[in-house]
Computed example of a mutant assay.
Amino acid sequence: MHDMLAMSVTGDSGERLPLRAWRLAGRGDGPSVHLQAGLHADEIAGMHVLHTLLPRLREAHENGRLAGTVTVVPQANPLGLAQFRHGRLLGRFHDATSRNFNRHFHESIATERAPTTFAAWQQALFGLARGAQIVLDLHTDSDALPYLYMHRGFWPEGRDLAAALNAQVAILWDDDDGAFEGAIVAHGQRDPHAKLRLAATIELRGQSDVSDALAQRDADGLYRFLCARGVIDEPVARTQWDGEAVPMANMETIFAPVSGVLVYTCELGERVEQGAPIARIVARPGDPSSEVVLRAPQSGRVVTRNRDRLIAQGDVALKLTGSQPSAGWRGGALDP
């Protein structure tokens, strides 16, 4: 069967907001899977990918080829979807609490008092995923290469996911920062019956990279991965991965030292040498002395850039891979 689960959460004004999910019950002899997109509600690409993938999963189910049960949540964040302000969707932070939607999951799951709307939504989402053996959370960065976040314990077995999606970089983490993925991993480590095989955050390029062609490419990659992992009975050719695996501590995050017009002097995917100029900020247009040059702290590859070209002081301008721990690394998440 493939049923839409009738679920809702309470919005900040007391209204009921739908949390749409589809569950395709397979034969039971394959891994159970949870796929979700839009945890940050303004990250749209994954929504289109799962919209594109779902009919193919239904076809596999109807033809008796679905071995594992698959849950699909194409829009995981109804609270964020309700936050249209001044013509834009503000879906990264919760208006009522200023909390990042992809943080605080441990607190929400553990709370014993009456949950806030934020905590109740996180509990509902975690409840949909907690029984799955493979959990994939689809996000996008601002302007980026396709890349993955993955707990080090799933590597190098997780290379098959990176290869299927043609991810350029896999960022391996050790310490949880309260994100959804971290809560799933902690649950898998804590519960001996969980049998968690893989949890990963998939960054599908940048927020403007939404098209039928990209969605089809990514949906095809996810489908191949599910076949290779025994979720769907269909032979697929295994592909080699020639990307770069980087410990989280080695990632260099370059913050804007001043506000102003952001001008990049490097492209996504470009390899840069330590000390090389990678961008500049014109703090006071018209005043040549106000230009501030940003340089690579170590040699590496440009993974993400800020898609906004007027940047505020303290905002993330770029992220680069590195071959050694960053001098600025203090643990936790790369972004707030």
Rank of each mutant, 00 (worst) to 15 (best):
T321P: 15
E252V: 12
A120G: 06
G182Y: 11
Q324F: 04
D308C: 06
A199S: 13
Y149H: 10
R85T: 12
D177I: 02
A186G: 04
Q207N: 12
D191W: 05
R16K: 10
D12P: 01
C266V: 15
A110P: 03
L90P: 00
L17W: 10
V272H: 09
G153Q: 14
R205P: 03
D176K: 02
H104A: 08
E62W: 08
V231Q: 06
K319A: 02
L50K: 07
Q168W: 00
P74C: 10
A76H: 06
A6W: 01
R238D: 13
R205S: 11
L320E: 09
L136C: 10
Q207C: 14
I281W: 07
S299L: 03
H48P: 01
P18T: 06
V258M: 10
V70I: 14
D233R: 12
S8Y: 03
V210T: 14
A249P: 01
Q313K: 15
E234H: 14
L17S: 11
D42Q: 12
L165S: 03
R238A: 15
Q240N: 11
F225K: 02
P192Q: 11
V185A: 10
R284F: 08
H106E: 05
L214N: 07
E270A: 15
F225G: 00
V49I: 14
N250I: 07
G158N: 09
L66Q: 09
R197V: 01
S98K: 13
D220A: 13
V49F: 03
D218P: 02
G243L: 13
V33W: 14
A162S: 09
A256Y: 06
G80T: 08
A194E: 09
D242G: 09
P156F: 02
A114M: 10
S289R: 13
L53D: 08
R56L: 08
D143L: 15
D212Q: 11
P277Q: 14
Q274W: 00
G275S: 09
G300P: 06
L50W: 03
A37P: 08
P247N: 03
A199P: 05
A67Q: 13
R330D: 08
P277T: 08
R92M: 07
H34V: 02
E43S: 12
I311Q: 09
V72T: 00
V135R: 09
T116A: 05
I134G: 02
A132K: 14
D242C: 08
S208R: 15
D95K: 06
E157K: 04
G11R: 08
R92T: 08
R205G: 02
G80F: 13
K319E: 10
H61C: 11
A279H: 04
G300W: 05
A237K: 13
E267F: 06
A219S: 14
V169C: 01
V302Q: 08
G80I: 12
I171F: 02
L136A: 09
R305E: 09
A110I: 01
D176P: 11
Q133K: 07
W329A: 04
R217N: 06
G11K: 07
P55Q: 02
V49N: 11
P285F: 04
N306F: 05
L198G: 01
H48K: 11
A296E: 07
G87W: 02
D315I: 03
S211K: 09
N250P: 13
S98W: 11
E252M: 12
